[in-house]
């Protein structure tokens, strides 16, 4: 194999390199032992995190002015014997010109660190993602929500999710009442626990930092959290029950 550097920009179907040199990342696909782009965008090559030595070797082995370190995506847990760099294509020009310094370590969450660009590619909620959603309607058994934000990316489409009564909190599960936890209109931070059925993702708010983050009182005022289960209306002073998300240290 000739050691040519991968292109900086890719068009779907463009050859990125042999599969023996890279691992396929997002926005790429494998065909005939070669890696091809499947998206229109910028090519990123991420070296494996462990084994710095090997990484340096590889850098020396594959010289190319076009190659820029802009993003590190960790390799999947059972790493293959040979530590190959991951090649990916993303729609955004992550980091832009000053990209070399901005190394973002992804934590499994979808596309981190592309906040600036005008248009984003739609992402799908995946199991383990923390999402922000709005409560659409409640029933005694579950709260139906519309997922609006997944990780750091704002979703174009509204994906429907369900928070079932047993997934609201970790303790005293049998005493949970949906109407004491959520109201329609609340903004809830939750975790995706299952892809669910044909229409709904299943969400959970059992962890402390998950739950209602924004709520409007019956009088129409934005309320403040006062305890793990109560919000207060600053104008009327009325208290309302919710499954409150523990404020995260900023």
């Amino acid at each position: 194999m000739t050691t040519t550097a991968p292109p900086t920009l890719a068009i779907p179907g463009q050859l990125l390199g042999p599969a023996s040199r890279y691992q396929p990342g997002p926005g790429t696909h494998l065909h005939d032992a070669n890696l091809y782009a499947s998206l229109l965008g910028h090519v990123h090559v991420a070296q494996p995190q462990q084994s710095q030595q090997q990484q340096q070797q590889q850098q020396r082995r594959a010289p190319g002015p076009a190659k820029r370190l802009t993003k590190i995506t960790p390799a999947p847990a059972p790493t293959p014997p040979a530590e190959l760099p991951t090649i990916s294509v993303s729609v955004a020009a992550a980091g832009g010109g000053a990209g070399a310094g901005a190394v973002v370590v992804g934590d499994g969450g979808p596309v981190a660190g592309e906040r600036k660009q005008k248009k984003k590619r739609e992402v799908l909620p995946e199991v383990g993602n923390v999402v922000l959603c709005r409560v659409v309607r409640i029933t005694p058994r579950q709260a139906v929500v519309a997922i609006l934000v997944c990780g750091d990316s704002v979703l174009e489409a509204e994906w429907q999710g369900l928070i079932r009564v047993q997934d609201v909190r970790a303790t005293e599960k049998d005493r949970v009442r949906i109407y004491e936890s959520f109201r329609p209109g609340d903004v809830v931070r939750a975790e995706v626990i299952s892809l669910g059925d044909q229409a709904n993702y299943y969400l959970s708010t059992t962890r402390n930092e998950l739950g209602v983050v924004l709520a409007v009182s019956e009088a129409g005022n934005t309320m403040q959290p006062v305890s793990w289960k109560e919000f207060r209306d600053p104008e009327t002073g009325a208290m309302e029950l919710r499954k409150v998300a523990q404020p995260q240290p900023q």
């Binding site: 068009i11 779907p12 179907g13 926005g27 696909h29 065909h31 091809y36 499947s38 998206l39 229109l40 965008g41 729609v91 590619r121 739609e122």
Partner: peptide
């Protein structure tokens, strides 16, 4: 489709 960012094997 390429503009929308939907994975394609080729153009």
């Amino acid at each position: 489709l390429a503009d929308a960012g939907i994975d394609c094997v080729d153009t």
